[in-house]
């Protein structure tokens, strides 16, 4: 993971671009920019919301796939995510991603002091999640079912394992300190995606709605559920809750889309307030194999440190950069 932190995402994107721009001639079966990019958890979607679209440029009789890297730069945090997905016959998607939250010492030092731990023990802390995803298209076609309102509908699951739940340098894990109950959890979702060709004053419009059942705190980066006594009033004890997510995008031309996303969060932990995640994005598809996303992400409150009053809040707003390579 440290490796991912040190490489600049721009350098990676540039390398990938150079590696692939000379191969742009090989033909993927799908239409340009009728698919999406890879969302943070490794599923085909927008930047933070899984869509009903299946990863890759394959058609129903082909196998395809994607690889992606995303970096979100927040004031006292960074989020990095990298992963791969396979799309089988435009029906089944299997994905793996590793998400990492890097925490600045400005946040961890007061925690170390408050807990009486050896100074510097949490310096350079990261918390990672492994995410294994599966998505199955069950009905409709987002692009070809024009002239009807029928969307493409998919169901999916994301099994997440927080690998830094309990231990950082043999002491304690930040998710556990904050009151999370479990180190792993599984999200289940239903996504509906529809492309309206010419639907926005002649421009192509994509709308997506996703309903998710989840126990995850901040996407799983702060663990799952809440331990007894650590649950926020009204969180239902930190079990599964239903969250709503939406994306809207307009293709200004076949290569460029702008859009917005919104995703509600469970807000299980009394120690740290969790808000809806939002972003405004610009996606650029130079060809069928490449996609670059530039976004402004507003991830709401993150833990800001420790004060006499408890854990303070920190607005996590920042720049979101992502690159995706698609096959075939």
């Amino acid at each position: 993971m440290l490796r991912f932190r040190k490489l600049s995402p721009i350098a990676i994107a540039a390398t990938v671009f150079v590696m692939l721009s000379c191969q742009a001639a090989f033909a993927g079966g799908r239409l340009l920019a009728t698919g999406g990019v890879t969302e943070l958890e490794g599923s085909e979607g927008g930047g933070i919301v899984p869509w009903a679209i299946i990863a890759g440029m394959e058609t129903r009789d082909q196998v395809g796939g994607t690889a992606f890297y995303t970096h979100i730069s927040l004031p006292n945090y960074d989020v990095d995510s990298a992963g791969v997905a396979v799309g089988i016959g435009e029906r089944l998607e299997l994905s793996y991603a590793r998400e990492t939250l890097s925490i600045s010492n400005a946040i961890t030092t007061p925690i170390v002091t408050a807990l009486g731990l050896p100074l510097g023990v949490l310096d350079g802390s990261t918390i990672s999640d492994d995410v294994i995803g599966a998505k199955l298209k069950i009905a409709g076609d987002a692009v070809y079912d024009q002239g009807s309102l029928m969307p493409q509908i998919s169901i999916g699951a994301q099994h997440k394992v927080n690998t830094d739940f309990k231990q950082v340098l043999g002491v304690t894990g930040i998710p556990e300190v904050l009151g999370a109950k479990n180190a792993s959890g599984t999200d289940f979702y239903l996504a509906m995606t529809k492309v309206f060709l010419g639907g926005a004053g002649g421009l192509n419009l994509l709308l997506n709605g996703t309903i998710r059942e989840t126990e995850a705190n901040q996407d799983g980066l702060l663990g799952f559920g809440c331990a007894p006594g650590a649950c926020r009033a009204g969180s239902g004890g930190g079990g599964y809750s239903t969250q709503g997510e939406g994306s809207a995008a307009v293709f200004l031309n076949p290569n460029t889309a702008i859009g917005a996303e919104y995703r509600t969060m469970p807000n299980n932990l009394v120690s740290t307030q969790e808000d809806a995640w939002k972003d405004l994005f610009l996606a650029y598809f130079p060809n069928k194999q490449l996609a670059f996303t530039l976004a402004y992400a507003a991830l709401g409150n993150f833990p800001g440190g420790i004060s006499a009053a408890g854990i303070t809040k920190e607005q996590a707003n920042g720049l979101f950069l992502s690159g995706q390579v698609s096959f075939p």
């Binding site: 692009v143 024009q146 060709l197 010419g198 421009l203």
Partner: peptide, 8 residues
């Protein structure tokens, strides 16, 4: 876009 929408 509209023509492709009719043919899709």
């Amino acid at each position: 876009n509209r023509l492709i929408g009719l043919l899709a």
